[in-house]
Amino acid sequence: MASAVWDISGPALTSVREQVDAQLADFVSAQEQEAPGPEMAPLFATARRLLFSRGKRLRPLLCMAGWQAAGSPGDSHAVLRVAAALELFQTFALIHDDVMDDSDVRRGGPTAHRSLAAAYIRAGGRHSRAEAHGRGAAILLGDLLLVWSDTMLADARLSARARARVLPLVDTMRAELVHGQYLDLLGTGRISEDVGAALRVARYKTGKYTVERPLHIGVSLADGGPGLLQTCTDFALPLGEAFQLRDDLIGVFGDPVQTGKPVGDDIREGKATVLLALAFQAASRAERRLLSTLVGSPELTDEDLGRVHTVLDTTGARQRVEMMIVSRRDAALAALKAADLVSDVTAMLTRIAWTATERYP
């Protein structure tokens, strides 16, 4: 089931994505009709491009899987609205993340701040002001998507009991993402051999935010019990860490044509990944000097990146990360097997687990 890019296929998964996309398309169109004027067009064009280009819809899929695992009671309208709201929140997070990292490319196209800077120039804005405008406009667009995610949650027409179960989980998910992002920000630019700290970032940014909480929200929409919530956690946390570890490898060794993102940005930014921590632990004195010099350098050349690649291979860091991915995926699949969920949910989660962890760089 190996795949170089995300390919979560199958009729049920495709149907969920199509239904979520329809919810998002209708919602954004309705919001645009309420916009104050044509000046807002670049914001909506950028939002649409990011929402509908190369998105995996992983969080909506997991939300639906949690709901189905708990018996999928009632109409699917509410869960689809909540699932779509998760995608709006994810796009908000990506936009702000790209501003913080000063990234150029997202999902195969320019990041929001780059796109909005270019739109500003096309509209007659001054080149000297374009970069600041792009950053400011992107922050506002991210804020707008955050507001939209709340609006879509409110439009889900949840019962009072369902709101009491679900909204605290949404708030927790959002706070956990901020915690993870801040931990990531703190570690950036400080090369370290602290694998535990890097794994903590992976747990909050990916294990909890990307996998565990969307499953929990789906289960809670269906009023599932604590046992099922724990099963979701047992599956989600190791899988989320494995997912992030795979992303770390792809970010250094991947193909930008397939990933839609530049290769080597984590090295240029000095991200405190497990991959780099393991390399620094095992590096010789000369290799440590090389890593200390090159990691975190925004002027890193392709030749420099190749030298870092060599260290990551010769120290065994790349191989050890591969082994960590396998062990965590195995733990997630073992938890899934022990859970005895309905077959469609087990099949969906199994496919997600393999696809998330077998994307080869």
Rank of each mutant, 00 (worst) to 15 (best):
M1F: 13
A4Y: 07
V5Y: 07
L13K: 09
L13F: 11
S15G: 15
S15F: 08
R17N: 15
Q19D: 13
L24F: 08
V28H: 10
A30C: 11
Q31D: 03
P36E: 08
G37W: 08
L43E: 05
F44T: 04
R49H: 09
L50F: 00
S53N: 01
L58Y: 04
R59P: 01
P60V: 04
L62T: 10
G66L: 06
G66T: 04
G66D: 04
W67Q: 07
A69D: 10
G71S: 04
S72F: 03
P73D: 02
H77N: 13
L86R: 01
L88N: 00
L88R: 00
H96W: 08
H96S: 04
D102F: 10
V105I: 05
V105Q: 04
R106F: 00
R107V: 00
A112R: 06
H113K: 00
R114Y: 06
R114G: 08
S115I: 06
S115P: 07
Y120I: 01
R126S: 07
H127F: 12
A130D: 07
A132P: 02
I139G: 11
G142L: 02
D143T: 02
S149E: 00
S159D: 04
A160Y: 09
R165Q: 05
L169G: 10
D171E: 15
M173W: 09
L177W: 01
L177Q: 00
V178N: 11
H179N: 03
Y182K: 03
G187V: 06
I191V: 06
S192K: 02
E193T: 05
A198Y: 09
Y209C: 11
Y209S: 09
T210S: 15
V211H: 02
R213F: 15
I217M: 05
S220I: 08
G224Y: 14
T231P: 01
L237D: 09
P238N: 13
L239C: 02
Q244E: 03
L245R: 13
D248T: 02
G251N: 11
G251S: 06
V252E: 01
F253L: 15
G254I: 10
G260C: 00
G264E: 11
D266T: 08
G270T: 05
K271A: 03
A272P: 07
T273Y: 14
L275C: 11
L276W: 08
A277R: 08
A277S: 12
Q281L: 06
R285Y: 11
A286L: 14
L290Q: 15
L291A: 05
L294W: 02
E299L: 09
T301Q: 03
E303Q: 05
G306T: 10
V308T: 11
V311R: 02
R320E: 14
S327M: 08
L333F: 06
A335M: 03
A338C: 05
A338K: 10
V342Q: 12
D344Y: 12
A353R: 00
A353S: 02
E358W: 12
Y360G: 04
